[in-house]
């Protein structure tokens, strides 16, 4: 229940924060929903905690007409909370999948405090966001005292609890595309009954045109060490009419070639099968919402 002691800094500017973490021994605190429980169980014991919550720059949620994606992008400051994303009129209209994923995270108290930047940087293999971010082909904007870089989400997340983030680097924002009109979306999840984390979670985006499925993106979390895009499913469904049989056929490939997790709550076999089931469900709902 009681964490080890640490040095604490609460910088008010990004510059100050980057200078503090440049020293190398600091752990960054955003909402704290992952870090603080670990510290309380003494599974994490950082010597220096840099609390980003006073940096106003990291809270902005805004649209950028040109930016990273051809149709425009939403820039979600690393400190945007799950609740802000789930309830933001901008996100709900321009990137509704992300709002739907956010509304599925943890519980309301966690969503009030937990942040998209913190969750993404923690890279929990059972977290909800990565499924959505994979399906959205999101980008992660990183910054150091010396410069900036932007990584696609599938390069940012390396493995379970492991990212491409360097010790002197911060997640500045998550960038997602402004959704094309008519895109259907869905996030479907089998929740672990105790923690609410995803045993498997599947996010889907689809577009239809003239009776054909023209675009499919599927992101999967929970199944493996890292979230991934189920590209086989995407390819199989694109070009079909999106019938129930088409969906089943495509979804059957959702777990192919993936090294599935096993734990107390689900065997690899069950996880694989549930990935197929929830992929089908996500695709079905997404197609029903596409027009």
């Amino acid at each position: 229940m009681i964490p080890q002691n640490f040095e604490y800094s609460a910088p008010t500017s990004l510059k100050e924060a980057l200078a503090l973490i440049a020293k190398g021994d600091a752990k960054v605190l955003a909402g704290g929903m992952s870090l603080i429980p670990l510290m309380k169980l003494r599974l994490a014991a950082p010597e220096h905690v840099v609390d980003l919550s006073r940096i106003a720059d990291l809270k902005s949620v805004h649209e950028d007409g040109k930016g990273e994606f051809p149709g425009g992008a939403l820039h979600l400051g690393a400190l945007a909370t799950h609740f802000e994303i789930e309830s933001s009129a901008l996100v709900r209209s321009k990137c509704p999948l992300l709002a739907e994923v956010a509304s599925n995270i943890g519980d309301v108290q966690v969503r009030n405090v937990g942040t998209i930047g913190g969750s993404t940087a923690h890279a929990d293999p059972a977290a909800d966001y990565p499924a959505g971010l994979m399906a959205l082909e999101a980008k992660v904007h990183l910054t150091t005292a010396k410069g900036e870089r932007t990584l696609p989400i599938d390069q940012f997340i390396v493995d379970a609890l492991s990212t491409a983030l360097k010790p002197n680097e911060l997640v500045r924002e998550i960038i997602v595309p402004v959704e094309t009109r008519g895109t259907g979306f869905s996030y479907q999840k089998l929740a672990q009954p105790a923690s609410g984390f995803a045993v498997v979670g599947v996010a889907a985006r689809v577009r239809k045109s003239a009776g054909k499925v023209t675009f499919v993106r599927v992101g999967v979390t929970g199944l493996a060490g890292k979230a991934f895009r189920a590209t086989r499913v995407e390819k199989l469904l694109e070009g079909t009419s999106g019938s129930a049989a088409d969906i089943q056929k495509a979804a059957a490939q959702a777990a192919e070639g993936v090294d599935a997790n096993t734990d107390l709550h689900a065997s690899a076999d069950y996880r694989r099968q549930m990935t197929k089931v929830f992929t089908a469900r996500a695709l079905t709902q997404a197609l029903s919402r596409a027009d």
Partner: peptide, 11 residues
């Protein structure tokens, strides 16, 4: 005990 927290023991 591998269900030693409310994260793993489902109420």
């Amino acid at each position: 005990l591998i269900t030693g927290e409310l994260m793993d023991y489902a109420l």
